[in-house]
Design a protein around this nucleic acid. Structure first.
Lengths: 146, 146
DNA sequence: CGCTTCGGTTGACAAAAGCAACAATTTACA
DNA sequence: TGTAAATTGTTGCTTTTGTCAACCGAAGCG
């Protein structure tokens, strides 16, 4: 049955992620913080609410994490002029630099796992990943927005 | 660069997993507990240490989680006769039943995400997943054992 | 206007996870 | 053999992470 096979992959890839995410052990940022920095940089000027929807977080919790990131000088908030309730989030220059370091470190961990694989196998791997993204993307977005 | 593409997939699939794992919200077991039940059933008579290595858990933490699972009558421990430090872990009949329910529920969530996809696309999806497992399996095992 | 919704903050609390000290075995090896 | 070192697991304590509900000010809307 297909569901079984997908769950098998899920169990497998959960452990792959565990290994590849170990880079955060070396960092002063947690995995969540890293993901937030990444997303804030990708979606410049996004609101806390955007992040809540994207990552499915509790708003109280996120509020605190953002406060911490701000106190660490990685993120800055500007109140939106159109809607004074909303906050627009940006990385500071420091934050951008931190993120670049994190990305480099993350790449490093990923490569340590992958660069022993022959070139052609790596290509197959990437193709397979892109295939999965292609097929599942619409459902992720769909589920997220409700 | 390949690492970037893999990290993109990782970010993507992290969110897929978040959605597909929501089944645990409906359960009296947490995600970790579910994974433990699954692994104890798969690897009957395994020790706490086996689980620590497999899931990379703190041993103190695992000890408590197992105690809880035992108090819930899902897991039973037998002291190993060869090595009196070691404990052999098994599911109880209740635990096996709970696990079966969890698996059914999990399948349900996975299907809810996947069954809108045309049959042939589903097949491509599974093929891609199997491809990834094939390519990465040895590295997961390798990393885990050290 | 007054009511409701929305975006975000705060306090209090619960759950999850990590750390270090410890006990009981087992293993290694002098 | 005996004893130090390593292994397996437990416990107390702390920190981190996450949840819940009450709340505030702003915006939408009849």
């Amino acid at each position: 049955m297909n569901a079984e096979k997908i769950r098998k992959f899920n169990r497998f890839y959960t452990r792959v992620l565990g290994l590849m995410n170990q880079y955060t052990d070396k960092s002063k940022f947690t995995l969540l913080e890293t993901q937030l920095l990444y997303e804030i940089n990708r979606n410049k000027g996004c609101s806390a609410n955007d992040l809540i929807n994207f990552f499915q977080l509790d708003k109280g919790y996120l509020s605190r994490v953002l406060k911490k990131l701000e106190s660490q000088n990685a993120v800055i908030r500007h109140y939106s002029s159109e809607d004074k309730r909303k906050i627009k989030l940006y990385l500071t220059n420091d934050g951008k630099k931190e993120l670049d370091d994190l990305i480099a470190l993350s790449n490093c961990y990923v490569l340590s796992m992958v660069d022993q694989i022959p070139e052609e196998e790596q290509l197959k791997l990437i193709k397979a990943m892109e295939q999965i993204e292609l097929i599942l993307t619409e459902f992720v977005d769909q589920k997220r927005n409700k």
